[in-house]
Each structure stands twice: as structure tokens, then as C-alpha cells.
């Protein structure tokens, strides 16, 4: 039972809780209209201290499709944060108006801090380079829907593995599953932090900077963007941003049933020609993201799974 809980890190949910959430999400995927009234009378607050289009739209669409309503801000300049209000004060005030709050913040740990003061569930919608648990739920649901189950896979993660919060969240959550082999593909300057590797449990991993060399062994390729906003140095960003470009030629090296995922937005790490390949599932993934958020909102607000 997730009612009243905060979702701050991808490991906040046990395997049983994840399974229950996925089952609800799959029921929503099959017949979304059956759930169009579950959120009636409820309000979701979206507190976005950093620009975001798809995550905010995904949450807002999820709440609206449940029949609920949304309040919030999409940049701190239009909120009381611009006047210097603390996160604790903001969330306590928002708790007077809304039933749950979604927070994106450029500083790592901000949603955790908010949760300490909050009377309503706080959902982390991305905090700096740290965590992005609902993207992880999206990714896990996508793997489950398109690959049958989550265990027993070789999963390649490619791009910015140092600052990429989606990667950190996803790997942490995947580590709970069995018999996975991770292939971490990154430039030497953007390798995955050691503390993530320490928490892989019984799963195995390898690290490389050569995407082509490992394409053939992957069941899933998770591409990520080199994020300009994580660099203090523009020159360093420009040097690294074109490091990996997935194109049709590289896709020929992959298994026929491999899937390519991406948290979006992409810049140039996946060539547009790949979009025509049926193994490119990133737009389906975005849709699953809305469905899993509908399921999560229902669970956190106790809106009934049946």
C-alpha cells in the first residue's frame, strides 16, 4: 500500500510494490477510459524549479486523464522561491491546497528535504544529477511490456553515465532484479560513479567506451543525452556531446529483438533515421511514462486499484 508515501529515490519501492504498480499500470494501458474518473476532486501540485517539458506534461496529463486537476509553477521565477522562500515553507503551504506534490529541482536532495516538511506525498521529478524515480518506473514498465520480464537481460547504458540521473535511478532499481548483465558505455570522463557499481548486488557488469563493440550482445540499449546543464565548462560539453551517435549502421550490429530506449529529449545521440526502426521504442516509452504516473498517483492518493 503506497497511500501517503513519498517517492524520492527509485529504491523507495520494494519489488512487490513495483509489481503491484506495474499491474495497475498495465490495466490502465489496456483501458485508460476506465480510470478517467478516479482522480475527481483531487489536486496535484507541480513544483518545477527547473525547466522541463515532458516530465511536467506527463504528470499533468496523467492527473488530467484521471479526472483530477493541476496547479503549480514551471520555473522558480514565477513562484515564491524567487522571493527567497525555503523549500520547507513552500511545501507546507502547498500541502494546504493540493493532495500530492511533484517536485523538480536543480539541487540534489531537494525533494528529500521537502518530504521532511510535507503533509502530502512528494514525488521527485528529477533532482540535479541525482535521481529521477518516475523515469525509472517508466523505463521498467517499458522493459516489462516490450521484453516480457525484467530479469535475465544484458542491458547497455550509453552516454553520460556520470551526471545522468535517469541512469543512476534505473541502475539502482534494476539491481533488485536477478541475473542482469550491465554494459556501461561512456567516454572516460563520464563513467558511472563507483557508488552505483557497489550496489549492483549479484548482477555483473563491464565498462567500455566502444559502443559498436558491444552492440551485438545487448537485449536493451538505453541511450542518454550529454546534458549541457551539468557542465561548468562549455568547451568540455562541446567536446563530449558528439561522442556517441546511434545510426542505422550501428543498428545493423544489434540483435533483431533488441530495443532502444531513451528518456528524451534527445539531441543528436540518436540519428532520426533510427526512428523508423521498429526496435526504437522511445516514443512508446514516453506514453508508458504517462500511464505509470497515472498508476502512481492513484496509489499514493489511495484512489483504488480496481
Amino acid at each position: 500500500m503506497l497511500k501517503g508515501r513519498h517517492i524520492i529515490e527509485s529504491t523507495d519501492l520494494s519489488l512487490e510494490e513495483l509489481e503491484s504498480l506495474f499491474q495497475l499500470a498495465e490495466r490502465i494501458v489496456e483501458a485508460p477510459q476506465r480510470f478517467s474518473d478516479r482522480g475527481r476532486g483531487k489536486i496535484l501540485a507541480t513544483l518545477f524549479y527547473e525547466p522541463s517539458t515532458r516530465t511536467r506534461f506527463s504528470f499533468e496529463a496523467a492527473m488530467l486523464r484521471l479526472g483530477g486537476q493541476v496547479i503549480g509553477f514551471s520555473e522558480p521565477g514565477s513562484s515564491s522561491a524567487a522571493k527567497g522562500e525555503s523549500i520547507g515553507d513552500t511545501i507546507r503551504t502547498v500541502g494546504c491546497y493540493a493532495d500530492a506534490a511533484v517536485m523538480r529541482h536543480p539541487k540534489e536532495g531537494a525533494p528529500r528535504l521537502a518530504s521532511k516538511f510535507s503533509s502530502i506525498p512528494v514525488i521527485n521529478a528529477g533532482d540535479g544529477g541525482h535521481q529521477h524515480p518516475t523515469q525509472t518506473l517508466t523505463d521498467l514498465l517499458t522493459i516489462r511490456r516490450l521484453k516480457g520480464d525484467i530479469s535475465n537481460k544484458t542491458i547497455g547504458l550509453c552516454g553520460d553515465l556520470m551526471f545522468g540521473r535517469t541512469v543512476h535511478s534505473l541502475v539502482n532499481a534494476l539491481a533488485q532484479y536477478d541475473n542482469l548483465h550491465f554494459v556501461f558505455i561512456s567516454p572516460p570522463e563520464l563513467t558511472i560513479p563507483p557508488y552505483i557499481l557497489e550496489e549492483l548486488g549479484s548482477n555483473t557488469y563491464e565498462q567500455t567506451n566502444d559502443l559498436e563493440a558491444v552492440m551485438g550482445k545487448l537485449d536493451i540499449l538505453y541511450m542518454t543525452r550529454i546534458q549541457r546543464e551539468r557542465f561548468f565548462n562549455e568547451e568540455e560539453y562541446l567536446r563530449l556531446k558528439g561522442y556517441y551517435i546511434l545510426d542505422a549502421e550501428k543498428m545493423e550490429l544489434a540483435k533483431e529483438d533488441m530495443i532502444v530506449m531513451h528518456p528524451l529529449p534527445r539531441v543528436d545521440e540518436i540519428a532520426p533515421e533510427v526512428d523508423r526502426d521498429p526496435r526504437a521504442v522511445y516514443f512508446q516509452q514516453a506514453k508508458f511514462g504517462m500511464y505509470i504516473r497515472m498508476a502512481l498517483i492513484m496509489e499514493l492518493l489511495g484512489l483504488g486499484g480496481e
Partner: peptide, 13 residues
């Protein structure tokens, strides 16, 4: 020591 940590900017934490 992480300059991106919320504790580096939020007062009274």
C-alpha cells in the same frame, strides 16, 4: 562537499 547538494544553498538545513 557536493556543490549541487541542496544543503549547499538552502538555509537552516
Amino acid at each position: 562537499k557536493n556543490p549541487r547538494c541542496i544543503t549547499s544553498v538552502e538555509p537552516h538545513v
